Amino acid sequence: MQCTSAEFAKLRAANGIRRSSGRMGMCLDSALAEALNAALKRELLHGTGKRRWRDEFEARTDIFRWIARYNHHRRHSAIGNVPPGVYEDRLARMTALAA
């Protein structure tokens, strides 16, 4: 398994990334991260055909922009196919009306 290889462990440690602490074989532990990574690959890497960046800054900038769009503008099926900002605004208004 790639996630438990010695090389991957060294790379993780060198970049300050902690491993998940879930039990072995527990798929729910990493399902959200796997879904996010799949969307990133599908939409940013495969969707644009861009596979290489000139430097780390360009890669980080593109990924930051994608994450900002994913979190604030992209429609999410789990919340009624609206962007998270719209969903949170509606929830805040409904909460205020209920109070």
Rank of each mutant, 00 (worst) to 15 (best):
D89H: 05
N15E: 11
P83H: 00
S20C: 13
A6D: 09
M94S: 12
K50D: 00
Q2G: 07
R54K: 14
I63G: 07
E43H: 00
S20Y: 07
I63H: 03
D29W: 13
P84M: 02
R65G: 03
E88K: 09
R60D: 13
T4Y: 12
A31V: 11
C27H: 09
R54W: 04
T48L: 02
T48H: 01
W66A: 04
L91F: 03
V82C: 02
L40I: 00
Q2Y: 12
I17A: 09
N81Q: 08
L45R: 00
Y87W: 14
A96T: 14
R12C: 08
R23F: 15
L11F: 05
L36C: 08
R74E: 05
K50E: 00
R69C: 04
S20A: 12
N15H: 15
A78T: 15
S30G: 06
P84I: 04
S77W: 09
R60M: 08
I67E: 03
E88V: 09
I67Y: 03
R42S: 15
A39P: 12
W66L: 01
D62Q: 13
A6N: 14
S77T: 15
Y87E: 03
A99D: 11
A68F: 01
R12N: 04
R19C: 15
M1P: 12
L97Y: 10
L28N: 14
Y70T: 02
G80W: 04
R75K: 13
M94W: 10
E56A: 08
L32P: 01
T61W: 10
L32Q: 11
W66Q: 00
D55T: 04
E34Y: 10
A35Y: 13
E7M: 07
N37G: 06
L45H: 01
L40Q: 01
S20I: 08
W53F: 12
A68K: 06
A68Y: 07
R23G: 15
A13C: 11
G49A: 01
G49K: 06
R52T: 09
E58Y: 03
R42F: 04
L91V: 10
E43I: 00
E56G: 01
L97C: 11
I67S: 03
R19Q: 15
C3S: 09
W66E: 06
R18W: 09
K50W: 01
S77Y: 09
R65H: 12
F8D: 05
Y87M: 10
L45N: 02
P83G: 03
L11N: 10
H73L: 08
G16I: 07
M26F: 08
T61S: 15
N15C: 05
A98T: 06
A35K: 14
A98C: 13
I63N: 03
L32K: 11
A35E: 14
L11Y: 07
E34C: 10
R75T: 07
L97F: 13
T4C: 05
L45W: 08
A38P: 05
D29Q: 11
A38W: 12
A33F: 12
P83T: 02
A98W: 03
E34P: 07
L40M: 02
V86I: 06
L32N: 11
F64E: 14
M26T: 04
F8I: 03
